[in-house]
C-alpha cells in the first residue's frame, strides 16, 4: 500500500501521509498528537520530534535537537540541496559543494540577502542550523504548488524546488525632504518557492514557536509584519495603521506618532506565524505608505 492509498492526510503539511509511524514521513510532524488549536483558531505546529526522518527523493533529512534544531541531510548520489552558506554546521569531506549564483545579485545584496546560494550534492552528509532558538518547519510541496516565505527564514530546499524572489511592495516613509526615510516592515524582498516538475521539500527555520491557520475567503487578520513566516500566494497582504486615542501631553507632539503598524492578511489560504518578532523602532510621523487601511480610535 502506498502513502496515497492510506487516506490519511497530515494536518500540518496537508499532504497524503502514513499514519502507521510516529511522525509524518513528509514533514516530520508527530502523528500521535491531538491538534492544539487556540480559541481564536491558531493551530500550534508541534515541533518535529528529535531524530525524526523526512524523506525526499532518494535522500532524507534527520532533525536533531530541540532548542536550535539541526537538519542533518543524508544525500543519495545525484540528489542535491541548496542553502545559504552561513547555515552550514558540518559536512563530510566527500560531499560536493558548489556555488549557485542568483539573478538580481545587487538587489539581494542591498536587501541583506545571500547573493550566492550553496549547493551540496550527494552522496554524503551535510548538516545545517540557524542561530535562533526555535523550530524547523518542513513544507513538502506537490507539483504546481507555490509558497511565499519571509526573507531570512529559508533554511534549505531540495534541488528540484524552483526559487525566486520578488519585491514585497510594502513600505512606509517617515520624515520629509532630506530627512525622509523609507522602511520595509515585511522586508524589501520575499522568497517564492515552486515545485514545477516533481514534488519537493522546503525547510524553514522559525524563531520561537510556529502557529498555522486557514483564512476563509475574505477573512482578514492583523499580525506583526515580522511575525509572518509563510503564506499561500492566494493570501493578500497589505499594511494597516492603527492610531490609539491620545490626549493631553502626547498629543502635543505632531512630529512623532503613536501608532501600531500591522500586516493585514486576507484569505483565502494558509498563513503561518512565528512567536518571535522584531519590535518596530521607527516612531516618526508617516508621510508616505504603500496601499494600506487605517483606523483612528
Amino acid at each position: 500500500m502506498t502513502i496515497a492509498d492510506t487516506g490519511y492526510v497530515c494536518r500540518y503539511c496537508r499532504q497524503p501521509s502514513d499514519p502507521s509511524g510516529t511522525s509524518c514521513p513528509r514533514c516530520g510532524a508527530p502523528i500521535d498528537v491531538t491538534a492544539v488549536v487556540s480559541r481564536s483558531g491558531w493551530m500550534k505546529q508541534p515541533a518535529i520530534k528529535d531524530m525524526a526522518r523526512i524523506q525526499f527523493g532518494q535522500s532524507h533529512v534527520q532533525i536533531e535537537g530541540r532548542q536550535v534544531p539541526t537538519a542533518d541531510f543524508a544525500l543519495a548520489a545525484g540528489d542535491s540541496i541548496y542553502f545559504g552558506h552561513h547555515t552550514m554546521l558540518w559536512l563530510d569531506p566527500a560531499t560536493r559543494l558548489q556555488a549557485m549564483s542568483m539573478a538580481g545579485g545587487w538587489k539581494r545584496m542591498i536587501a541583506g540577502l545571500p547573493v550566492i546560494m550553496t549547493q551540496a550534492t550527494g552522496p554524503g552528509h551535510i548538516a545545517l542550523s540557524d542561530d535562533h532558538a526555535g523550530e524547523i518547519v518542513a513544507l513538502p510541496l506537490n507539483v504546481g504548488q507555490q509558497i511565499w516565505v519571509r526573507e531570512h527564514r529559508f533554511l534549505a530546499a531540495s534541488g528540484n524546488l524552483t526559487y525566486g524572489f520578488e519585491a514585497n511592495n510594502i513600505w512606509i516613509t517617515t520624515g520629509s525632504g532630506n530627512d525622509a526615510k523609507t522602511t520595509y516592515p515585511l522586508g524589501w524582498i520575499g522568497d517564492r518557492f515552486s515545485a514545477q516538475n516533481n514534488a519537493a521539500l522546503l525547510l524553514l527555520h522559525a524563531p520561537g514557536n510556529t502557529f498555522v491557520r486557514d483564512l476563509a475567503q475574505g477573512e482578514s487578520i492583523l499580525i506583526q509584519p515580522t511575525a509572518l513566516l509563510y503564506r499561500d500566494l492566494s493570501v493578500q497582504a497589505h499594511l494597516h495603521i492603527e492610531y490609539p486615542r491620545t490626549q493631553g501631553f502626547f498629543s502635543m507632539f505632531n512630529r512623532f506618532s503613536y501608532r501600531h503598524v500591522w500586516l493585514r492578511l486576507t484569505g483565502p489560504g494558509r498563513v503561518a506565524m512565528q512567536s518571535v518578532f522584531e519590535r518596530e523602532e521607527e516612531s516618526e510621523q508617516i508621510t508616505g505608505i504603500s496601499p494600506a487601511t487605517e483606523q483612528r480610535w
Binding site: 536533531e64 535537537g65 536550535v68 554546521l89 558540518w90 569531506p93
Partner: peptide, 20 residues
C-alpha cells in the same frame, strides 16, 4: 542551542563550521 558529540576514529575527518 543544542550540543552534539561525535567520536572520530584515528584519521577520520569531519569539517565543522568554526563557530559551531
Amino acid at each position: 542551542g543544542d550540543v552534539m558529540e561525535r567520536t572520530l576514529a584515528p584519521g577520520e575527518k569531519v569539517l565543522v563550521e568554526p563557530g559551531g
